[in-house]
Each structure stands twice: as structure tokens, then as C-alpha cells.
Design a protein around this nucleic acid. Sequence first.
DNA 1: GAGGCATATTCCTGTCAAGGCATATTACAT
DNA 2: ATGTAATATGCCTTGACAGGAATATGCCTC
Lengths: 110, 110
Amino acid sequence: MHTTMFSILSEPNRLDIVEVLYKSPRTVNEIAGLLKLNQPQTSKHLRVLADAGIVEATPIKNQRMYMLKPDKFEELDRWLEKFRYMWDERLKRLERLLKEKKEVKKNGRK
Amino acid sequence: MHTTMFSILSEPNRLDIVEVLYKSPRTVNEIAGLLKLNQPQTSKHLRVLADAGIVEATPIKNQRMYMLKPDKFEELDRWLEKFRYMWDERLKRLERLLKEKKEVKKNGRK
DNA sequence: GAGGCATATTCCTGTCAAGGCATATTACAT
DNA sequence: ATGTAATATGCCTTGACAGGAATATGCCTC
């Protein structure tokens, strides 16, 4: 279900975290510092993100390095694929082409 | 901001509405019927979707025909673009290629 | 193994948004 | 103009969830 992905990213701070991690992996305190969040809330958001598989952590020394996991984004991308027909010009051209062919057929039958 | 798009689609019934409208435009009652929602909540959800520009209605007789608007989906798609590097194999191949070129350069300098 | 950072968890509180139900509005037909 | 079907809005209650502050846990270093 995509609703979980959506609801998780609908929280502005979490979206910001994703935008930060998209540039490079970060520790909790780095994230908190960059986004001016308190450490506890940062940890909480990261927990939510991690539970959803959007993010993963690898321990390094005393700290935890968080980074994005591709899977959920890929999933979302595949879902969006369905709607691409609405604006994809190549597809529109294809449609026009098919229409023309139909016309030709019609005229041919006359 | 994409948070609005996300928060709107995080509501399961609204996502369902989008999935229905993706197949074809529908009137309010049709949607309510298909998804077994009460008419008032359906109207409310449609209002939210319309206010966000995800959906638009055209009056036809006594009813309102709702359909998807491409813009927001396109926007979302462009946003996702940024993350595509994470799984897109073509890009990974490209990266490898660039790396190889670097190596060649290095060796050439020796 | 004690002290010190880095991170995680808990409890509390307030806010916000969805559902249910009643009702209002609009557009059409006659 | 009045009745009627289609849709929209208002009000209320309830549940979910984010932030704040305090505290707990984990993991190094010495």
C-alpha cells in the first residue's frame, strides 16, 4: 500500500530529512543540526522512516549513519508510471497516430 | 511543496478515488457507490482533491463529472526523478563508465 | 568499570482531520 | 414555480500523531 509512504512523507520534517539524506548519508545529530530539530524528534522521525523501509542505519563508532533505501522510491515510481500517460507527449503522439490510422480505415471503407 | 500532495494521498479513501478516476472520469455518486463511501464524505474528499488541483470537475446536466488533472502527478514525477539514480541501472552503468575513464586518465599520466 | 557522548524511548498535551448525520444548495424537469 | 435528484456544507465527536521535556539505553575511551 502506498498510503504509508505518502503519510510518512507528508510530515514536513520527515520530507526534509529525506531531502537531506538524498544528498548524502548523515548521523542523527548532523540531521538535527541541519534542520534545526531537537535530537529526540529527529530520532523519532528516523524511526518512523526506518520502520517503513525508507531509510536504514549503519552503526559507525558511537553513532548511526542514516541513508536512503531505494526500494520504496522505486515502488512509488512504478505506481506513478500509471499516470504518466496523462502528460507524456510521446504517448500523446502515439494516440494521435492511432487515431489517424482509424480515420484512414474509415475512409477506406467508404 | 510536495507535502500537501503526500498528505492528501495518504488518506486511503482519497487514494482509492484517484485510482478510480485514473481509469475513467466519474460522478460523485458513482465514486461513492464503487468505493462504498457515503456521499457526503465523497464530496468532501473530492473537495480536498479539487482544492489541491489533483482533480477537476465539469458540470454535466445535474451532475459533476470528476477527472484527474495531470499537473500534480507530473510534479511528483519530477521530484522523484532526483531519487532515480538510486536504482536506475542505466545510470549505474554510466557511472561505471565515467569511473573507467578516470582510471584511464590516471594511468595515462603515469 | 566509570564517565561521557550519541541516540533512543516514554509520557504528556494539544492540534487537526476524518466520519456520521443532518441539512443546505444547486440544477434540472415538468 | 415546485418538486426532485445530485451534490455540497456544517457541526460534533473521536482518534492519530507531532512536539516538548525528562529520562533511559548503548557504545566508546581511558
